[in-house]
Design a protein around this nucleic acid. Sequence first.
DNA 1: TCGCATAAAGTTATCGCTAACGCAACGCTC
DNA 2: GAGCGTTGCGTTAGCGATAACTTTATGCGA
Lengths: 360, 360
Amino acid sequence: MTISTDSKPGDDARGEKENKERVVPTLASIAERVGVSANTVSRALRAPNTVRPELRKRINIAMEELNYVPNRLAGGLSGTRTDIVGVVVTSLYYSEFASIIDTLQSSLLEHDLQVMLANTRYNPDQELKLVRSILSWRPAAVAIIGIDHPPKVVELLKSSGIPIIEMWDTSGPVIDTAIGFDHQAVGAAQARHLIDRGYRTLAFVGSLRENDRRARKRLLGLETEAVKAGITPVITCTEPIGGSPDLGEKLALHVLQTHPGIDAIVCNSDVVAFGVMRGLRNLGRRVPEDVGVIAFGDNEAAACITPPLTTIRPDRERIGRLTADAIVARINGGEPQTTIVDWKLVARESTQREATDEGG
Amino acid sequence: MTISTDSKPGDDARGEKENKERVVPTLASIAERVGVSANTVSRALRAPNTVRPELRKRINIAMEELNYVPNRLAGGLSGTRTDIVGVVVTSLYYSEFASIIDTLQSSLLEHDLQVMLANTRYNPDQELKLVRSILSWRPAAVAIIGIDHPPKVVELLKSSGIPIIEMWDTSGPVIDTAIGFDHQAVGAAQARHLIDRGYRTLAFVGSLRENDRRARKRLLGLETEAVKAGITPVITCTEPIGGSPDLGEKLALHVLQTHPGIDAIVCNSDVVAFGVMRGLRNLGRRVPEDVGVIAFGDNEAAACITPPLTTIRPDRERIGRLTADAIVARINGGEPQTTIVDWKLVARESTQREATDEGG
DNA sequence: TCGCATAAAGTTATCGCTAACGCAACGCTC
DNA sequence: GAGCGTTGCGTTAGCGATAACTTTATGCGA
């Protein structure tokens, strides 16, 4: 295989000799070449069966030869609607929302809808800026993570007049349509699970960004449920940085130093739990015998680490697919509605206490 | 002939009373409200210091009150360029490209460039469709994973006349600018590492999609280097589906059944390796004593599983950042260039053979 | 006071496409 | 063969911004 790296971007141009200045072809140039009006070319694209087959074929050939790519800025400006769907997520790290985006975008593709992505990184100012930016492209719809947005964001989204799908969280007032689940219930389930398994001294650990409202809801659920059982969990969190194994390890060391009696740790994410378990190992604490660990997210590695991690599995692909469905439905005049998507507590070894000294 | 359109979208004028139908404000409506021409409002946005401060303030207030969001379809059509950057990736699962996208988009945001995302899922037909779709938005630049594209895609990208940044792979002819590394060298390094550690019977395992050219390059490097040492690796791959722990487990069982003598497994991705190690455990093979495992990707969990996984760590964030830099530079007239980004073989326990019976 | 540079706004002409309408040419019915 | 619906394509008028001018104040030196 010969690899030559000096490829001039432009010296291919086998058609137009004098292609010094690349001329991006327009509908009009296609029309001229074929000898019809621009509108006929437009029709050949949008409503092919209104154009004579023979003519249509000639038009298609011309478009192919000139490498015509329609200008959707013009199309969108002229027509009523674009085929953009704005997608706003709060994070792209790890697997948190990647697979939602994955299924969402591939489902939308079937309807010829194009994703415009924005990542707020849990920064509300950025969220406003990005939502504004996305709306300026006059998208057909917007899908956004969460239901807790700055007031201005809500105002903008509402006044845009397009379908707004809020994903991931459904516990609260919604702008239009929501698809997700109740995070407080997740926290409660985590607490219940640990208590049922005989754990008694709970800690919550992780990166709890101020604007990660979902994490706060889970924590609230955890506390509420624990208090019911007469337990007050220890909270150890960091604010600014995101979750990572290293953070988990650090927090595990810290929390067990300050509260040696802790026998169960709830992690804000699986990735943090990975580090927590490493930290526990370094401290000589056995999981699950000495300390139980439960997390949230069901990262792809959760079942592969030692011991396998008990965690919460949200059905991300379902959320992605249902969001795409909802977008299409709403665009076609369907009614707004809120859909709860199931999640599962996947009990693995990390919370499997051998002997339950006190029954749950 | 006088054409009279009964449904004047302008007869709301300033009578906001009858606001049953939401009216999306335009530059003109702001202008009217303030009592200036549309162009002045436009200037207040684009070149604020050409507008009297007092007037500018009134314009800003009006925009705020009406929740004005500029229509960039119009702006892009009229102006020379949009602030869209098309980003084309081959996968969104797991951590493969998520963090590239993450850094890329947040770096671009600093320059007010907006990401439009497309995911080809390793499907060349989809790649063509998506590239066409992205180009139809007249982006300022396109960043795309890989350097091996269908000819038509290359043709379209070249004839678009905008900067094209190819990411992740640099081993071959490039359209314009590339930022990545040589995957064949990665494969060679994997082989050398295993051989140096005393492993002698190598297997390559994973999902090897036909259009994942990078994986094939790594495999080629692996084979070439192994053959130099008189070793012929066993290849066991699946085509259609993507990599996952379950796949890894299945393949590990299979490969050790058919080739019991294997003492080292190279995995196409960390996620596959997670499953491979689980499979080995189930078979009673110790890692790294009986079988060494090396992978590619440096997933966030790689250092947390047991034993910690030896793997290749590409500098994704650097690639993301450099890609953003390159885009900005190229837009501002900089020259195309190819940049090699370092990767690292992170040696952990999964290839740490206690006794090296034969020196490397 | 005139002349001229400068500042601050208004005018006009696109950008490339689509929607709505216009209008031949044709086929069908009675 | 008059009437009328179809088919197939052309014409015209925007969509909402920006760029390039033009026009109208304003300041300032000679």
